[in-house]
Design a protein around this nucleic acid. Structure first.
Ligand code: ATP
Ligand code: ATP
Lengths: 415, 415
DNA sequence: GTTAAC
DNA sequence: GTTAAC
DNA sequence: CTGCTT
DNA sequence: AAGCAG
């Protein structure tokens, strides 16, 4: 057994301020690769989107600067700059240097917001060699700079402005990240997506990194997630258009769904909770799936398009070729982990299931042509799946006896 | 546009102490359902296991008490109780009430440890209506109690003892969790698993919740992950036994693998990093998979068991029926998120890939009988997969033209 | 979780 | 309205 | 009943 | 691929 005389108070370290973020970035942004790097933008962008969701911002500008930094500017309310009662420091500095400081714990004027932990801005600050925060408020430009989370200036007024809003410019720390080069297409996609999700929001993205080949893009959509579905299907053939569109407000929780089918076989479903892309799904996705599968099965049987005795379509069957975007807005989101990959609120499952079942059933009843196309598509998927399974089992049964060969001329079942 | 006059310093809240944990449990334990509940045990258990990994503890006792609480006792070094220089409070109180306080940031005598954030104990404390910490040190019993993360007593000496170690007893907060009833089998499984992973560690689990039907179990394994594989395969038929066993120390990183195949078709692979079950895998799993697929393909071709022109076995093919346990121990683990579901260290991927490729190739060369069984198994899987795909495509091609019916008599390809 | 039956 | 089944 | 988990 | 959970 090893020596234990040295285990004492001195062995225990208390990480202070933003130290834990730099020491354990994985806990805060998942990793230090290219995904973690882009998380920095998402954290700042999400704050601006939250302002837009709350009705305070209408425009967001993201700029890749020539010096490798990124700027995110919005015309929201601007982070307050006056002294904060708890920290006795500027509220701006508080938000950017103190973990769990935020306006999304009940007050702050955000009815629904993607942010909820109050750590995003601080995390970005901690992981940037330099960060410049500018707040445009009351005709003045308030500015503070930081380095690796530590203020290098006070909050100072550097000029006058007619604008209102916030701009964050940050330089990702190469000591932390394996790469510090942002990907244009990744960010472009995200901007497009956020623009689809928030009616009336303008997002402008500009790449100034190579002055000889500048690029920029502006997104503004009125049509919402139906247009998003159309964009996802851009290089595919849709079975019908416009997509099924369901939007409903239940107890202050807004549920929106747009879906259609394409002629191909892969599933493209994107789920959002308060505009956060929940890449691992969660209760909203589970609820949608249950309702979708059940509604199609019920309709298929009731309408006689498939026979009662034929067995049910599986979830996989009805999802083949499906394109869908689901966006829920709710007051108290619970996400799994700081990276918000999965929505946890258990009540959302049944809420969505109810809304989607009702809405989809109604759609199918009122659109017999589209319904027929859907049922044909998913019934074919079911037959294909059954045939594949049967073929597989034949081989397994036979092969268990005989010897082996690889594909090539295992033509047993091909024709 | 909504009113913005009220957005000011007062709108921003700074959560202090353990408030953020209670306000946003999802960020710290993933959720508040049954999984989140059990996370509490894992956090405390992992601390004891870390003591065992460091060679200071040999025995852990977990008890489900009649009053609904859980106790975890170990014979490790005991959390220090003297005043901590940074907080001016007892180190015990510091560890249990301050986030990011821990002995696993470089000092503390832990060479490898599953803990790394310094938040686990505090999180459990925050989410418990009551927590009792007892430290057995220098012949004395030191004790402190807390309620929802707030100390309700000082650290007091309550008696004498010959033992050394730590015991944490906690009462999960029904205000936080949707259920507060621990699952015997879930915890039993985890104890068994940890015992397999740590040679020479005894883990005792006891259920005193129903005095009329007490149950208890003691785990102690010398054989390690090979025995774990055998246990996973308990109700299955293994193609060969003992399993392939690889263990290697590369630059202070210990890589251990045990694997075999069963006659069934599902894959059972469990990966661990510093004894943490990485449920979403990560770089160790990725490295293993790459090496495994390549080693089997290379051997199959080189040995002539499958022909050169037959195409390659896919990863899915070679994983059908695979049972494996992978355990890596490394100095500076990076996990994705606080719940540690995925290992992030990029260097581990190639490290494992090299070790596994070499070890598995050697095994195959030295065990031609086992090798033959493996190749037969995976080649059959490949043929079955190809046949399934072919059958599926036949249906799709035909079905695109004809009408629809569901399974039932789509016997096209079954015989 | 929803729906059907008692 | 509550309980059992899907 | 459908989906998620091991 | 089977059992549990919502
Ligand atoms: N662009 C902005 N405009 C107005 N207020 C902002 C802006 N960015 C941040 N804030 C304020 O600062 C607070 C802290 O932001 P921060 O990014 O740290 O966390 P959050 O958005 O509350 O939560 P999360 O960590 O989940 O993203 C926010 O709650 C908001 O009140
Ligand atoms: N049973 C124990 N025996 C000895 N020391 C312990 C024990 N439990 C906790 N400690 C000490 O308290 C510190 C803090 O523990 P805590 O659970 O908060 O975090 P951690 O294990 O360091 O990291 P993580 O949050 O990733 O689990 C540990 O680093 C360790 O030094």
């Amino acid at each position: 057994m090893a020596d234990n005389t040295s285990y004492s108070a001195q062995s225990i370290t208390v990480l202070e301020g933003l130290e834990p973020v730099r020491k354990r970035p994985g806990m805060y942004i998942g990793g230090t690769g290219v995904d973690g790097l882009h998380h920095l933008i998402w954290e700042i962008l999400d704050n601006s989107v939250d302002e837009a969701l709350a009705g305070f911002a209408t425009r967001i500008d993201i700029t890749f600067n020539e010096d490798g930094s990124v700027s995110v500017l919005d015309d929201g309310r601007g982070i307050p700059v006056e002294v904060h009662p708890q920290t006795k420091k500027s509220t701006l500095e508080t938000v950017l240097t103190v973990l769990h400081a935020g306006g999304k714990f009940g007050d702050g004027g955000y009815k629904v917001s993607g942010g909820l932990h109050g750590v995003g801005s601080s995390v970005v600050n901690a992981l940037s060699t330099k960060l410049i925060a500018e707040v445009y408020l009351d005709g003045k430009v308030h500015r503070q700079e930081y380095s690796r989370g530590v203020p290098t200036t006070e909050v100072v007024v550097t000029g006058e402005t007619k604008a209102r809003g916030t701009q964050i410019t940050f330089y990702p720390d190469a000591e932390i990240f394996t790469t510090t080069e942002f990907n244009w297409n990744t960010v472009l996609d995200r901007c497009r997506q956020q623009s689809y999700l928030t009616r009336g929001l303008t997002i402008h993205l500009e790449d100034k990194r190579k002055p000889e080949t500048p690029q920029s893009y502006t997104f503004y959509f009125e049509s919402g997630i139906e247009a998003y579905v159309r964009h996802i299907d851009a290089n595919k053939t849709e079975l019908f258009s416009p997509p099924v569109s369901i939007e409903k407000d239940v107890d202050g929780c807004i549920i929106a769904l747009a879906m259609t089918y394409t002629t191909d076989f892969s599933e493209h479903v994107y789920t959002f909770a308060n505009n956060i892309l929940t890449i691992d799904g969660g209760t909203h996705l589970t609820g949608f799936r249950a309702a979708h599968t059940r509604a199609i099965n019920d309709y298929a049987k009731k309408s006689g398009l498939i026979r009662e005795g034929d067995g049910s379509l599986t979830g996989d069957d009805v999802r083949e070729g499906l394109t869908a975007v689901i966006s829920v807005k709710l007051g108290n989101p619970q996400f799994e982990g700081q990276t918000k990959g999965k929505l946890g609120n258990p009540e959302i499952r049944s809420l969505i299931e109810g809304v989607v079942y009702e809405g989809l059933t109604e759609y199918l009843n009122e659109h017999p042509n589209e319904a027929k196309k859907i049922i044909e598509k998913v019934a074919l998927a079911a037959r294909a799946r059954a045939a594949a399974r049967a073929a597989r089992e034949t081989i397994i049964r036979k092969g268990a006896l005989e010897g082996m060969t690889l594909p090539g001329k295992l033509a047993d079942c091909t024709e």
